[in-house]
């Protein structure tokens, strides 16, 4: 029987207090990895810890100095990070006509700058180990754009370009970097949509339904494993066929 065994691996998942990030953390944990939970939502992290039994840290990943401080604690406790999942992300939707510079900066900082911070700080231990997996959470919006989401789309498109660049830099060291581009996934973000809006969305999704956080987590599990050994710089769509 084929199975994925991540025992001995240390994974760090940002934005893991709820939604897709939490599903990823639990999935990697179920595969045997030690999963470090990172978020700003301490309460959510506490609930995660009840299941993972590993360290959780409240950290603003958009701040380089906070990530530096975080890394000291992580390296002291775990000595390494093998799998880095940059999942933390926010939206501040607005038409460009109404979007403020603050809304632009906040989304770019949390969604894109954060990935620079964590990769910059954690990649060297992966390079030295000659093994690493970096998985960045992009979005279909980063590929197709969306009215009212110029900041979010730019951050996710930027994340894809960033991932391809580091994939090239790290490839020879067996440190692989890939993106996942989820489509519409059932989380708090989609919960508030009206039935009519949902029906409209379904028309653009060949599978005719929203995805589950676990659908994304399953791809992270694959990308974290040896089964993805010859895969880097790619964007894996998890969108029910929305973009082909």
């Amino acid at each position: 029987m084929i199975s994925i065994d991540l025992s001995g691996k240390v994974a760090l998942v940002t934005g893991s207090a709820r939604g897709i990030g939490k599903a990823i953390a639990l999935k990697l944990n179920a595969a045997g990895a030690k999963v470090i939970g990172i978020d700003l939502d301490t309460n959510g992290l506490e609930k995660l810890k009840e299941k993972t039994k590993e360290e959780i840290y409240t950290c603003d990943v958009s701040s380089f100095t906070e990530v530096e401080e975080l890394s000291k604690k992580v390296f002291e406790k775990y000595q390494k990070v093998d799998i880095l999942v940059n999942n933390a992300g926010i939206t501040r939707d607005n038409l460009i006509m109404r979007m403020t510079p603050e809304e632009w900066d906040l989304v770019l900082n949390v969604n894109l700058r954060s990935a620079f911070n964590t990769v910059k700080i954690f990649h060297r231990s992966m390079l030295r180990a000659r093994w690493g997996r970096i998985i960045n959470m992009a979005s279909v919006i980063g590929l197709m754009g969306n009215s009212g989401q110029a900041n979010y789309a730019a951050s996710k498109g930027g994340l894809i370009a960033f991932t391809k660049s580091i994939a090239k830099e790290f490839a020879k060291k067996n440190v692989l970097a890939n993106c996942i581009a989820p489509g519409l996934i059932e989380t708090k973000m989609t919960e508030s949509l009206s039935e009519t809006t949902k029906e409209e969305y379904f028309k653009g999704i060949p599978q005719g339904k929203f995805g589950q956080p676990d659908d994304v987590a399953n791809i992270v599990l694959f990308l974290s494993s040896e089964f993805s050994a010859y895969l880097t710089g790619q964007v894996i769509h998890c969108d029910g066929g929305m973009i082909m």
Partner: peptide
């Protein structure tokens, strides 16, 4: 060593 190893060492 390759160029990345040397850069890492120099850092």
């Amino acid at each position: 060593a390759d160029s990345l190893d040397v850069m890492d060492f120099i850092m």
